[in-house]
Design a protein around this nucleic acid. Sequence first.
DNA 1: ATGACTGCAAAGGGTTTGCATTGAA
DNA 2: TTCAATGCAAACCCTTTGCAGTCAT
Lengths: 146, 146
Amino acid sequence: MKSTTHKPVTRNTIQRDLVLEAVMTLRNHPTPEEVYEHIHKEHPTVSKGTVYRNLNFLVESGQLSKIPIPGAAHRVDHTLAPHYHIVCKQCGRVYDVDMPYQAKLAGKIRDTGGFEIQEHEIVFWGICPHCGKRQWPQTETAARQK
Amino acid sequence: MKSTTHKPVTRNTIQRDLVLEAVMTLRNHPTPEEVYEHIHKEHPTVSKGTVYRNLNFLVESGQLSKIPIPGAAHRVDHTLAPHYHIVCKQCGRVYDVDMPYQAKLAGKIRDTGGFEIQEHEIVFWGICPHCGKRQWPQTETAARQK
DNA sequence: ATGACTGCAAAGGGTTTGCATTGAA
DNA sequence: TTCAATGCAAACCCTTTGCAGTCAT
């Protein structure tokens, strides 16, 4: 029974600020790991668990958004408006896609089968300009950063 | 240097047959875990590693396709033609979406930024008929699977 | 003073891998 | 006979969690 739910008082810790600031500074849809590494350089005592906890907090409180990448680590997005992403199949980097939000996409479903559709996610896959220009200077072993 | 690549001779093992057959029988976009469990009932000696190895083999050899679900375990699909999926936010089940393949979707990108776009993936999220009909007979702790 | 938040390390889910052995060709 | 495929367990990656201590309020 949580009839009287007291919403917990949130506290502004430096760690939380650092996490938000890191995402805003990096701007490149970092993975939690990348956020951690960015912070760790200057503040080596901040733990990875704290980075994860704060990323989750910031996403849940609407200050950041989460990009779930199929088959890879999540990314964090400093942009809040819904938009789409493209993932480079070679280097794994994630970029924003310059495409209007497809508000009518769910309307193209012929038969929803009784599903109540709430949202959608589009991910494109391709080769980014960096990787595309290279003449595959990779060794066989170094191939695809998985 | 792989000038003369000898493609390895593949062997038809019962395990491989069992994995393919399980996916075809289940038909419901099973996770590798579900495939393993299905096989395990009748053939308890088949190991999970073998299930994973064979799923990967079957996907790579074009006999099955893989549905990477953002933020959850992969699913395996017995259907090879490109199509889309919807994930129930409550029970996590994955269903096919009855929507034509959006061949022109990439054309809606205003500026590709030099990206070479190869494919896309659309995932819808919602509440499936089973879960929608229920009056939330959940306890607070049992809420949202995972 | 309170309890939200931290650092740490352990545990968890999902998947891959090393190795000795098995068995399809 | 050969070496692809297996069973097993350990390792791996990403993420969450339990706990004792800390610190913003």
